[in-house]
Nucleic acid binder design. Structure first.
Length: 269
DNA sequence: CGGGCTGTTGACTC
DNA sequence: AGAGTCAACAGCCC
């Protein structure tokens, strides 16, 4: 599940590998992930030269001379820099580059590859309504966003229109670091809680971003990330000891998703 | 073999 | 506003 640390790392790798390269040919295996008919998508981007690669939350933003290529990997996928001789078994899109290499894009069916014309980014609703990127967020930003709201803190954090980049993998450790129960409501948070939450967002994402993302995701060269199971504090560690107090970590249902908490460190009231 | 679970997002409902 | 459910149908686990 690629979230901020993985997407941030992929964007950095793609920037190094793709800037100044041109797409000489594009193959679309799964047209349903596009926002345009296949032939038009290909027409718009063939011949485009990559100018820059960045990201907004979980969306990769590839800026080219002919417009934007926007990628969302959904629940998982691989972005691989390969050659025609080393193609992966599965890919949904393939971009041949002018140096003979290929950029292969694979994801589960609910990923997206969208084309947006230069200057029209604000008309792309799925990215236009994203909140600010999670990592650079400040205590002041967060306080402003939370004030006057009443929903649960977990649903707030993973709602991309509030903050972009946090998903249901990193949110467990973020809430643990903030000592907040996922179902705590925003109107019950003290100034100290908000301060700790802002710090926790940073502490929960930065180490993984620095290590190239989680071990279960691969970079564009096919190598796993350096953020290992040992680096994860409590997420997906049901039954293990809380690193803070030793209490057994619990898995609980929080609305539509599961959460991992230390029942001692993250009390609801 | 098959059912249950998971992750993302938008649409939709209450 | 916010919470819940569903649908888009892959892969893993038991």
């Amino acid at each position: 599940m690629p979230e901020y640390p993985e997407i941030h790392s992929r964007a950095r790798e793609m920037k190094l590998a793709l800037v100044t390269r041109s797409f000489t040919n594009i193959e679309v295996v799964q047209p349903r992930c596009l926002n345009l008919p296949k032939t038009r998508f290909i027409h718009e981007l063939v011949g485009a030269k990559v100018l820059d690669v960045g990201h907004k939350g979980k969306w990769l933003m590839v800026e080219t001379t002919k417009g934007w290529l926007l990628l969302n990997l959904g629940m998982g996928g691989e972005l691989l820099l390969v050659t025609r001789a080393t193609l992966p078994k599965k890919y949904r899109l393939l971009f041949d580059l002018d140096d003979g290499s290929c950029f292969a894009v694979n994801f589960w069916w609910f990923g997206y590859a969208h084309y947006v014309a230069t200057g029209e980014l604000d008309r792309h609703e799925m990215t236009a309504r994203l909140g600010p990127n999670a990592l650079p967020i400040t205590v002041e930003d967060l306080g402003r966003m939370i004030s006057g709201r009443r929903g649960g803190v977990k649903s707030f954090l993973i709602d991309q229109s509030n903050i972009a980049g946090i998903g249901n993998a990193y949110v467990h450790d973020i809430l643990f670091l903030a000592r907040l129960h996922p179902l705590r409501t925003l109107d019950t948070l003290s100034t100290e809680d908000v301060t700790r939450l802002a710090e926790a967002i940073h502490k929960g994402l930065q180490p993984s971003a620095d290590k190239g993302g989680a071990f279960y995701e691969v970079n564009i060269h096919g190598q796993g990330g350096g953020f290992t199971g040992d680096d994860i504090l409590i997420g997906y560690k049901e039954g293990k000891d809380c690193p803070n107090c030793g209490t057994k970590i619990e898995k609980i249902k929080t609305g539509g998703t599961s959460s991992f908490i230390c029942p001692q460190c993250q009390k609801l009231s």
